[in-house]
Nucleic acid binder design. Sequence first.
RNA 1: GGAGAGGUGGCUGAGUGGUCGAAAGCGCUCCCCUGCUAAGGGAGUAAGGGUCUUAAAGCCCUUCGAGGGUUCGAAUCCCUCCCUCUCCGCCA
Length: 426
Amino acid sequence: MLDPKLLRNEIDKVAAELARRGLKFDVDNYNALEARRKDLQVRTEDLQKERNDSSRRIGQAKARGEDIEPLKAAVAMMGDVLKAGQAELLETQGALDAIYMGLPNILHESVPPGLSEDDNLEIRRWGEPVNLGFEAADHVDLGAALGQLDLEVAAKIAGSRFAVMKGQVARLHRALIQFMLNTHVEEHGYTEVYVPYMVNRDSLTGTGQLPKFEEDLFAVHGEQEYFLIPTAEVPVTNLARGEIQDAELLPLRFVCHTPCFRSEAGSYGKDTRGMIRQHQFEKVELVHLCRPEESYAELEILTGHAESILRRLGLPYRVIVLCSADTGFGAAKTYDIEVWMPSQKRYREISSCSNCEDFQARRMQARWRNPETGKPELLHTLNGSGLAAGRALIAVMENYQQADGSILIPEVLRPYMGGAERISPN
RNA sequence: GGAGAGGUGGCUGAGUGGUCGAAAGCGCUCCCCUGCUAAGGGAGUAAGGGUCUUAAAGCCCUUCGAGGGUUCGAAUCCCUCCCUCUCCGCCA
């Protein structure tokens, strides 16, 4: 959520910022609503004061043993007027809130302008795409030949966009997750957390998935309403919802492995083959909570931590900065890390690292106490994949495939694979 | 699943339908006194929002788990929901 004060005071500036995202903001409509809000709120609060004063006088009169009936009669009619005003204010405030909740974050000045993902800018590359010496198979064929990846049986059990892994491939997937968690905890100093995989509406509103993107989520309908998490960013960032952090504890850095569930509504026909885009996938997520002045330094650090996983795995990648059109709803700036996929002969997203500044923090009132002012102030929140495990798995399979259809296991994963060096057909 | 007890400020914990945003204690901040492995005294110390302002201060509204209701007036009474704890049952 953007700061309502910013909209009130500098609406034209905000509209110009939103235009960078290709959004046309109806300034006149907003100004009219806001004028109405102000008028109603001032009048309603005046009435409330009047009522409070009268009630207090009634109490005092009663204490003195006076007849309070005439006083009561005088205030009686006020109730209805007040109630009507409150209802009107609530309605107007609701309309304004709908606007506030629907507006994306303001982009950082360094975000390049653009109209589509084609305008994203490459920042750096690491590693050289390996020359296999033969035509690269994709992970679907590799997995099928190994007899350890079965998408058909997954479709039978659940439907499309699910996978069943077996044997060494299943273990490699698990090894990747363990490797990532251990690296972030032991070498990058993260605090590991375990969190619920189903969350309530408030949490999803806090991180920005709701109310606007409900169709992307899987809802669980029982006595209580739950949603399956689309990313660990939701439960982990919401750890701070409604809390005030001690300044000396910042920055907070959490790492968390969870499954992620996404409906992928609107991506019909996109990445239908294989494990690139699944309804259910595993991810190791990094979340930073920090002081506002350090959040862009934290974004570089977080992105670096995600990159280091790919380096250790020996997987070629590049880092891009998303352009104005491609930057997500809650983010002020996002780096995507893309890993080389030999079968597609191009880089594919494997991590997305964002600084949301105070956008999520304002929605969820996630704050820290600034020792200089003594007051609670909004935190900045960041999140990034470190990394998506399913995509990391297929990147390893494809980049480490051998002419005989076996897959070499990257050195750093071997301790997690019982010392095995290679995955061969069953 | 059954029975019961609770949810109050950073923490502990009082609270009678009427100056209660709320006693007291702890913690924290500042000041004073004193002087050495301490102690004593005083003051201050919740959050959100609005209004005015360059800003601050001030003034006002709201908030005692959440949402409704009764009332001139609700932390206090009523309803619904959520959560925590204890006992029983079941269970990974």
